[in-house]
Design a binder for these strands. Sequence first.
DNA 1: GCAATAGTGTCTTTAAGACATTATGTC
DNA 2: GACATAATGTCTTAAAGACACTATTGC
Lengths: 237, 237
Amino acid sequence: MSGTPWKPPPILLAVDLVILTLRSAQLHVLLVERGIEPYKGRYALPGGFLNNADEDLCAAAHRELREEANLNAAHLHLEQLGAYGAPDRDPRGRVVSVAYLAIAPGLPEPEAGTDAAGAAWTPVRDIDSGRLELAFDHRQILTDGIERARTKLEHSSLATAFCDETFTIAELQQVYEAVWGVSLDPRNFYRKVRGVPGFIVAAGAERRTTKGRPAQLFRSGPQTVLSPPLNRPHSGQ
Amino acid sequence: MSGTPWKPPPILLAVDLVILTLRSAQLHVLLVERGIEPYKGRYALPGGFLNNADEDLCAAAHRELREEANLNAAHLHLEQLGAYGAPDRDPRGRVVSVAYLAIAPGLPEPEAGTDAAGAAWTPVRDIDSGRLELAFDHRQILTDGIERARTKLEHSSLATAFCDETFTIAELQQVYEAVWGVSLDPRNFYRKVRGVPGFIVAAGAERRTTKGRPAQLFRSGPQTVLSPPLNRPHSGQ
DNA sequence: GCAATAGTGTCTTTAAGACATTATGTC
DNA sequence: GACATAATGTCTTAAAGACACTATTGC
């Protein structure tokens, strides 16, 4: 720390995004196909380097959300996952990446012709089943992101971020079932969810489907932290 | 991304440590007094810049643990909290810091005459009561570290990291009470803790105090994730 | 014996889970 | 009417919390 003049090591800083959504009751993640080496042709999480030394990490994440995913970042839940900094994680040199978790409601396929060309919603099953390999350490980042989403569903109102502005309780249940990977009793779920004060509030309107009784519509309530929490069934004995 | 040659912005990477321990049933954090500007004379979390471009983040955290805190890092629980990268968090320039949480059993005062001179265990109450102000954004980092410890106490065997190799159940309870900031019924706590399979195992010996019945000694069990969890009493209604 | 702490048992209250029932729409 | 889905009610079981009681030490 003294004596010899200290020269900062050349370290690059990047942000990567785990953008999760629900498509036909399946958890999907947004991936982009890499156009350049390394890992050319392989799929990777959207992300990129910091623009300049003054750019905030969170701002960089929002920017990549727009540029690479073509998503309106303003309405999306965004949360830091952590820093990934193994010295050999990027063959180009030392790159430390700060990962962010974003949750989006069901969205159409990303449009081609933009920065998001080559971006695609991919079922997370395809990755953790091993059918699809990701570039860098992105599989680990994705796993961490999903785990974070799972625990946040218990203690926060994150689940509503997967839904449109208004939603039925059955739709909300599908979020929990897809992210947790379990099936829940609709009657107990209904009772439990309505018993958490401030979680969801009735929106007045109803949703009519082709069959069956119309469902009440709800919107996200004022409470962001759930008390009591919606504990997920613990698998172990 | 193309056309103009891209020059990496000069960003420095640092690690900061939230080292928590228990001293006389109070949660303490290790702080160092800053000897140089900025924030000279102010207390801060131990930490420092990466040595070189090949140093792993986690290795840097361990190194700072030795250098600044004079703690044998090998036996300590170490876990990443996240990256702190607001552009104005360090007046010297752009410094992104990766924070780590470390848990240590009750330890004597750090020795003077080493890098740890000027290091002191400080009750966390002194910081979040506002009586003591920290340098940089270290108050926020500390708050995040404590919150992380609180939730990890519920779902993992982290609490045993605050204890010596063998401990009594009463000592384990003191950990939960100090970190959660609540008081628990010793009888229910005893029953609950013993009911979590693999959490703690009897060590055979007993601990004799000046008064009262000797207590059985335990050591940390094979299970690191607790099932069922030890839910902390949720404050809100 | 008393004081003090460790450990066990019991009861009450509450939440979780299983599942029957009623309500309200489309066809 | 049949059918499908929404919403409510009831019962059983398990866990959480309050607290009485017994056990084993030092003095």
